[in-house]
Simulated assay, not measured.
Amino acid sequence: MAKMCYDDNDRSKMMKKIKELEFAAVELNLYLDNHPNNQRALNDYNMTTDMLMDMKETYEVKYGPLTNFGYAKSTPSWKWVEEPWPWEIGE
């Protein structure tokens, strides 16, 4: 199986940023559950979600899908198992 050559430092930085944005989105979601009328928190949540979706899309274009089961298309061949799993990046 041929390995693709990637910039592991860039990949690790992108994965770290995705994790940070996911954490922020969850925290803002929980805050909004208790403060549903807080417009600033809602704006922050929407901005964070937009940034997260953009970062994930960029990551997947460069390195392949972050998840399976229909959230991302595959390349012409099935590459999912050829690279480290998303949670293995940066370890």
Rank of each mutant, 00 (worst) to 15 (best):
L30P: 00
R11N: 10
D33H: 09
L42P: 01
T49Q: 06
E27F: 02
R11V: 10
K13S: 14
D54H: 06
V61H: 09
A41W: 02
N46F: 01
K56T: 06
Y59H: 04
A41E: 04
F23E: 15
E60A: 10
A24M: 06
T48S: 01
E27Y: 00
E57Y: 13
D50V: 03
T48I: 01
N38W: 04
M14G: 07
N38H: 14
L42A: 10
Y45F: 15
M51F: 04
Q39Y: 00
N37T: 12
D33K: 14
I18A: 08
M14L: 14
E60H: 01
E22R: 06
R11F: 06
N29W: 02
V26P: 01
N34D: 12
Y45I: 06
N38L: 07
K62Q: 15
Y31R: 11
D10S: 14
L42C: 09
Y31W: 11
D10H: 10
K56M: 13
M53I: 12
L42T: 08
K16R: 11
Q39S: 03
E22S: 08
E20H: 10
A24Y: 02
M14D: 10
D33V: 04
N37G: 12
M55Y: 08
N38Q: 11
S12M: 11
E20T: 12
M53N: 14
H35D: 03
N9R: 15
K13H: 15
N43G: 05
L28M: 02
K19R: 14
D10V: 13
M53D: 14
K19P: 05
M55P: 03
K19E: 14
N38M: 08
N38K: 07
M14E: 11
A25C: 07
Y31I: 06
H35G: 00
Q39W: 00
P36G: 02
E60Y: 01
V26Y: 04
L52V: 09
E57V: 08
L52D: 12
S12L: 04
I18S: 07
E22V: 01
M53V: 13
H35M: 01
D10L: 15
S12N: 11
Y45T: 06
D44K: 04
M15V: 01
S12Y: 02
M14W: 04
M55K: 13
N29I: 00
R11A: 12
E22T: 04
F23R: 14
N43R: 07
L32A: 06
N43H: 04
N34P: 00
N43Y: 01
K62E: 14
Y59P: 05
N29P: 01
M15A: 03
S12P: 03
L42Y: 05
A24N: 08
M55F: 05
T48M: 01
D33I: 05
V61C: 07
F23C: 12
N9V: 15
T48F: 00
E57A: 15
T49Y: 01
E20D: 15
R11Q: 15
E27G: 02
S12K: 11
A41S: 12
K56V: 07
D8Q: 13
L28N: 03
R11T: 08
T49I: 02
V61S: 09
E22N: 07
D44R: 03
A41C: 07
L30Q: 14
E57G: 12
Q39K: 06
L21Q: 10
M15K: 03
K19G: 12
Y45D: 07
L32P: 03
N34H: 06
E60D: 03
M55H: 06
A25R: 09
